[in-house]
């Protein structure tokens, strides 16, 4: 696990929590033509917005497979806007009640076994979140792709029998990001992301994220399953799947406080 900040892990970052954060497919402005200069940025904004909803409440399962163990967690999640989310473990029993709270830039972990809350900071930000392939940083830090990267439509092709666009995102020189390049593959027809590959500054592919199982709830479409794999040939992965989710739920601000963590 890298120990440094993974600021740009937007979709990855966004991934775990943003996904549960009420992924809604916002149909904003009209889709520009493929060849227009605004097209790449427009697509990226769509993707960013997919993972940013108003509020949500859902149950998801996470499967983590590593060289040494495989485990599955069931988690309940709440989210509000971009900056507030709460995830609580429902199963396995041993860890039931353990929760992570994201409030703005802060991250707290509530440990059910000891009844303590720890503010996650410093070195711990780079370590694994709930034993998964996400780091704590992935959960908290996300900046819009269009702000940190220059982007271009670099390829068109077919993946899984579906025509796809491939965008290559290159980090702006002064952007505070770790990834040098992100390759985003989206379906041509729907512009939904299919896959993202993250490259480090040396140009080596480090991590891949797959979006699958698109579902529609109300007027929102989102990837119901998200899989992250480190590209080190280890065969390890983390997969998050929604069992159920509802959007635009009313959640009081007090949901996202340390006090609430303790009372859960």
């Amino acid at each position: 696990m890298p120990e440094y900040a993974r600021r740009p892990f937007l979709l990855g970052a966004g991934a775990a929590l943003a996904l549960l954060a009420g992924p809604g497919w916002a149909h904003a402005a009209e889709r520009p033509a493929k060849d227009s200069p605004e097209f790449p940025a427009w697509v990226m904004n769509q993707i960013d917005d997919m993972h940013r909803g108003d509020s949500s409440h859902g149950v998801m399962s996470m499967t983590v497979k590593t060289e040494h163990w495989t485990r599955s967690l069931t988690m309940e999640s709440w989210s509000k806007g971009e900056d507030y989310s709460l995830v609580r473990i429902l199963a396995p029993k041993k860890e039931k009640g353990t929760a992570t709270l994201e409030a703005g830039e802060d991250l707290f972990t509530y440990l059910a076994k000891t009844g303590r809350t720890v503010k996650v900071s410093g070195a711990m930000m780079g370590s694994a979140w709930m034993g998964s392939h996400f780091t704590n940083n992935d959960l908290v830090k996300s900046s819009r792709l269009a702000d940190a990267y220059t982007m271009a439509l670099t390829k068109e092709g077919v993946l899984h029998g579906v025509p796809q666009y491939v965008f290559t995102l290159t980090a702006k020189p002064d952007a505070p990001v770790v990834w040098g390049t992100i390759e985003v593959t989206v379906e041509q027809a729907t512009l939904r992301p299919t896959r993202e590959i993250f490259y480090d500054e040396e140009g080596e592919a480090v991590r891949a994220m797959q979006f699958a199982d698109y579902r529609t709830v109300g007027d929102r479409t989102f990837a119901g399953t998200l899989t992250v794999r480190p590209l080190d040939g280890s065969g390890e992965y983390t997969r998050v799947t929604y069992d159920s989710i509802e959007f635009d739920v009313k959640l009081p601000d007090s949901t996202f406080t340390v006090q609430h963590l303790k009372s859960l």
Partner: peptide, 10 residues
């Protein structure tokens, strides 16, 4: 993080 992947805390 415990050897079985669970969150070790005490």
């Amino acid at each position: 993080q415990a050897a079985d992947g669970s969150m070790a805390n005490d």
